[in-house]
Amino acid sequence: MAQGQKRNALVVQAATRALDQLKYEVASELGIATPQDGYWGTMTTRDTGAIGGNITRKLVALAEQQLAGRQ
């Protein structure tokens, strides 16, 4: 893949800000120090994986709640 191309494009572009906020919330819940300059590339794989895993867990739980409410 060429440099600068993203494989996972957001369907709703306005969700970018909400997902970014969720990233910082999850990091603080886990006690992981967030980078002051906004560059996450210097963080350990373990930390970023923990953040991503918890974000996924929260999003799946939210989707399950919404689907349960529709039935």
Rank of each mutant, 00 (worst) to 15 (best):
M1K: 07
M1A: 05
M1T: 12
M1C: 05
A2K: 08
A2Q: 10
A2G: 07
A2R: 11
Q5H: 07
K6D: 07
K6W: 04
R7G: 07
N8M: 06
A9E: 13
A9S: 12
A9Q: 10
A9P: 12
L10V: 04
L10P: 01
V11P: 05
V12L: 06
V12M: 06
Q13P: 09
Q13W: 03
A14K: 14
A14F: 04
A14H: 08
A15W: 10
T16D: 08
T16E: 13
T16F: 04
R17C: 08
A18T: 15
A18M: 13
L19Q: 03
L19E: 03
D20N: 12
Q21K: 15
L22S: 09
L22H: 05
K23M: 05
K23H: 09
Y24H: 13
E25W: 00
E25Q: 04
V26Y: 01
V26P: 01
V26G: 00
S28T: 09
E29H: 05
E29I: 01
L30M: 06
L30K: 10
L30P: 04
I32K: 00
I32P: 00
T34D: 04
T34Q: 08
P35N: 06
P35F: 02
P35S: 03
Q36W: 04
Q36K: 08
D37L: 03
D37R: 00
G38I: 02
Y39C: 11
W40Y: 02
W40N: 00
T42R: 11
T42Q: 11
T42I: 09
M43C: 13
M43E: 13
M43Y: 06
M43L: 12
T44P: 02
T45G: 07
T45F: 09
R46I: 15
R46C: 04
R46A: 11
R46G: 14
D47I: 01
D47W: 00
D47Q: 15
T48G: 01
A50L: 12
A50F: 04
I51K: 01
G52F: 10
G52K: 14
G53D: 12
G53Q: 12
G53N: 14
G53V: 02
N54Q: 14
N54M: 14
T56Y: 09
T56H: 09
R57H: 05
R57P: 11
K58L: 10
K58V: 05
K58N: 06
L59W: 00
L59P: 03
A61T: 13
A61W: 13
A61N: 15
A61C: 11
L62R: 09
A63H: 10
A63F: 09
E64A: 14
E64R: 12
E64C: 06
Q65A: 07
Q65D: 12
Q66E: 14
Q66A: 09
Q66R: 08
A68N: 08
A68E: 15
R70N: 07
Q71V: 11
Q71K: 08
